Simulated scan of single mutants.
Amino acid sequence: MSLVMPSELVVDRFLPTVRAMLARRLAERGLTQEEVAAHLGVTQAAVSNYVGGDTTTVARIRDDPRTGATVDRIADGLADGTMDGYAALAELLSLVREFEDRGPICELHEEEMPALRGVGCDLCVRGADAELRAERRALERVRRAARVLSTTPGMARFVPNVGSNVGEALPDATAVADVAAVPGRVYAVGERVEVPANPEFGASKHVATAVLAAGDVDPAVRGAVNVATDDALLSAARDAGVDPLEFDADYEDRRERLRERFRERGEVPAVAFHRGAFGVEPVSYVFGEMAVDAAERAAALVEAADG
Rank of each mutant, 00 (worst) to 15 (best):
M5R: 12
S7K: 09
V10Y: 00
V11P: 15
V11H: 15
D12I: 13
F14D: 03
L15S: 14
P16L: 13
T17L: 06
A20T: 15
A20S: 15
L22Q: 09
L22R: 11
L26D: 03
A27Q: 08
A38K: 01
L40V: 03
Q44A: 03
A45I: 06
N49S: 14
V51L: 07
G52V: 04
G53P: 12
T56F: 04
T56A: 06
V58G: 08
V58D: 15
R60M: 13
D64M: 05
G68A: 12
V71D: 15
D72L: 00
A75K: 05
A75V: 10
D76P: 08
D80G: 05
D84M: 02
D84A: 00
D84Y: 04
A88G: 05
L89V: 12
L89G: 14
E98C: 03
G103C: 02
G103S: 05
P104Q: 08
I105R: 04
L108Q: 00
P114H: 07
G118Y: 14
G118Q: 10
G118C: 07
V119G: 02
G120D: 01
G120K: 00
C121L: 05
D122S: 05
V125A: 00
E131Y: 15
L132C: 10
L132Q: 12
E135L: 13
R136G: 05
R141T: 08
V142N: 03
R144P: 05
V148I: 03
S150T: 07
S150Q: 04
S150G: 11
T152D: 02
G154R: 09
V159L: 01
P160N: 07
V162M: 01
S164H: 09
N165K: 01
A169W: 06
T174C: 03
A175L: 08
A175C: 13
D178I: 13
D178Q: 15
D178H: 09
V179Y: 09
V179K: 10
P183F: 01
R185K: 12
V186G: 04
V186H: 09
E191D: 15
R192V: 08
V193H: 03
N198K: 02
E200P: 14
F201T: 14
G202W: 03
G202H: 01
S204W: 14
K205C: 06
K205F: 07
H206I: 07
V207M: 02
A208K: 12
T209M: 12
T209V: 05
T209P: 02
L212S: 01
A214L: 11
G215W: 12
G215N: 06
D216K: 14
D216T: 12
N226C: 06
V227I: 01
V227Q: 00
D230H: 12
D231V: 07
A236G: 02
A236D: 08
A237V: 13
V242E: 09
V242K: 07
P244M: 03
D248W: 02
D250M: 03
R255G: 07
R259T: 10
R259S: 11
R265A: 13
R265Y: 11
E267S: 15
A272K: 09
F273L: 12
G276I: 10
G276M: 06
A277H: 07
E281H: 07
E281I: 11
P282A: 02
V283D: 04
Y285M: 13
V286K: 01
F287I: 15
G288F: 04
G288P: 11
A291C: 13
V292Q: 11
A295Y: 06
A295G: 05
E296V: 04
A298P: 06
A299E: 04
L301G: 02
G307A: 09
